[in-house]
Design a binder for these strands. Structure first.
Lengths: 143, 143
DNA sequence: TCAAGTTTGACAATGTGTTGTCGTTTTACT
DNA sequence: AGTAAAACGACAACACATTGTCAAACTTGA
């Protein structure tokens, strides 16, 4: 296999893995009334409240798609929009008590889930993979 | 970083890379009137004509989404539906002359594209990454 | 200070993919 | 053979994300 064929294989596998991970996330979060997309947004405000645009930048997505999810979560009382001292219209998105509880319940599922997935994978191989994927992300972000 | 944190990082990076790769594929194929999704379907019939369901299985997608793309490509005269001796209604999807030409033009872009992406990545690291991603795909396919 | 450029939220159109359902065709088993 | 199960194409509804546009809010620099 040439390096270029290997790369093509990797690209196709990433497409495939992406789809599988979304399905997994949907399954894990479905009992709590969430989805992968909602979970991601909830995770983005884990440490501090953020504006929609900030979340979009961190996740590498458009404002519009994040806004849609945020509005849904607000209707479900999972997040709330708080006034932003630095910007009159760009509200800060913050988890409600309910949102925090849901996120914590989901976080508890993660260790078992990742342990099962990593069963046949050495710590070193995982580290290499993470480094390579991160490098590719950086490369394509620049181009 | 615990192994479980590393895995979470990897998941988020895979989401990110997936989005970037789709954008890249769209950009590369846009001048030819194609998209990432159309390119993928075209690639799936590189070696031999396939039915929609066969393509969907290899790509890990639903019949329906592949069918939609296939119908579009047929309207654009990039593929054609051929009678399948083994199945009365499941037509074989085959590239037309135009489809073959488009696919070959795209294939020519790949080496330069992958070389640039792999610039800072050793052959060994790429091989490890491919193996890990493939293992994860297999794991989640089973579950 | 004030004008130009950027960021932001809102709205609309569109592309890609999923689930679900239906009727038909094919396959597998007894 | 004949019937139950599976695969297939078609259609519809919906989730997620993108691009594009607009007006309002903010930032920057002369």
């Amino acid at each position: 296999m040439t390096e270029h064929e290997g790369f093509t294989q990797l690209v196709l596998s990433v497409f495939r893995l992406n789809g599988l991970l979304i399905t997994e996330g949907d399954s894990l979060s479905q009992p709590l009334g969430l989805t992968s997309a909602r979970w991601k947004v909830l995770g983005a405000i884990e440490n501090a409240p953020q504006t929609v645009s900030q979340i979009a930048r961190t996740m590498g997505q458009t404002r519009q798609s994040v806004q849609r999810i945020a509005n849904e979560l607000e209707k479900l009382a999972i997040v709330s929009f708080e006034d932003n001292p630095d910007h009159k219209t760009a509200k800060l998105i913050q988890r409600t008590e309910r949102g925090t509880e849901l996120f914590e319940r989901l976080s508890e599922l993660l260790p078992a889930w990742s342990d099962a997935a990593l069963e046949d994978i050495t710590e070193e191989a995982l580290a290499t993979t993470l480094k390579v994927v991160a490098k590719l992300v950086t490369h394509f972000e620049k181009s």
